[in-house]
């Protein structure tokens, strides 16, 4: 029996959050953490969490497992369980709505701030805009972000300044459009980021890189933005 300790909080009935111990029969299989959560919910329907695709592309089930953020659906028990114990907590640093469900409002607001959509003032051609495979390759490692918030909620700078520091996820997308040869708003984009907080609160801690379930590297993207801002200033 796997020992699971799960964070519980229902604003209607609980004055404060608490940890609940549950035993789960995994049948000796190396299940995914999400499977374990489903087994818990089958016993106790009041446990709340988000989930959808169960294959690591929708980004719904970012949770903190034994202290590390990740997607429950693609984290096998063998990767996280130590001494037969699994501690499940909501992503840190965001307000909890209920149990493992956090309010992602601040996270999405930072994403929206970078205007994550292509801007091009020239009239669109009758076919697609051409882009060389080399230019397209510049978007690899950027566009794949699934907005699960594992990175930003693992970032101490984002914990301190969630309202002013864009955070790794938002900055990764900011760079995705800065790097796109089809986008013509580079100057405006950089101007909007050019303050002490939006980008420069990144201290290169690299928790984001460490937890990203898609293997992306926000710190590197932030470095590129930093260079663009600095070379513009000189």
């Amino acid at each position: 029996m796997l020992q699971v300790s799960i964070y519980r909080y229902n604003p209607e009935t609980d004055a404060e959050p608490y940890m609940q111990d549950v035993q789960v029969d995994t049948g000796g299989k190396d299940l995914m953490v999400l499977d374990v959560m489903e087994l818990i919910k089958a016993q106790d329907t009041t446990v709340a969490y988000r989930r959808s695709c169960r294959e690591g592309v929708c980004g719904s089930d970012g949770v903190n497992m034994n202290g590390k953020n990740g997607l429950a659906c693609i984290t096998p028990l063998s990767e996280t369980v130590r001494d037969n114990k699994l501690v499940l907590r909501p992503l840190p640093g965001l307000p909890v709505i209920r149990d493992l469900v956090v309010d992602m409002g601040m996270f999405y607001a930072q994403y929206e701030k970078v205007q994550p959509y292509l801007q091009n003032t020239s009239p669109a051609p009758a076919i697609e805009r051409l882009q060389s495979p080399e230019d397209r390759a510049k978007l690899d490692g950027l566009y794949e972000c699934i907005l699960c918030a594992c990175c930003s909620t693992a970032c101490p700078s984002f914990w301190w300044n969630p309202d002013r520091f864009i955070g790794p996820a938002g900055l990764l997308q900011a760079y995705r459009f800065l790097a796109d040869t089809r986008d013509t708003a580079t100057e405006e984009r950089l101007s909007r980021l050019d303050d002490p907080f939006s980008v420069f609160r990144c201290h290169g801690i690299q928790n984001c890189v460490n937890v990203c379930p898609k293997g992306l590297n926000p710190t590197r993207a932030i470095g590129h933005i930093r260079n663009m801002l600095l070379s513009r200033a000189t």
């Binding site: 292509l118 697609e128 051409l130 495979p133 230019d135 397209r136 978007l139 566009y143």
Partner: peptide, 20 residues
Amino acid sequence: AVFELEHMGLPFSRTEEGRI
């Protein structure tokens, strides 16, 4: 409809000619 998506920014893979 597909060209509209490209104009909106969809990061299609590319051919050597730069097309989708």
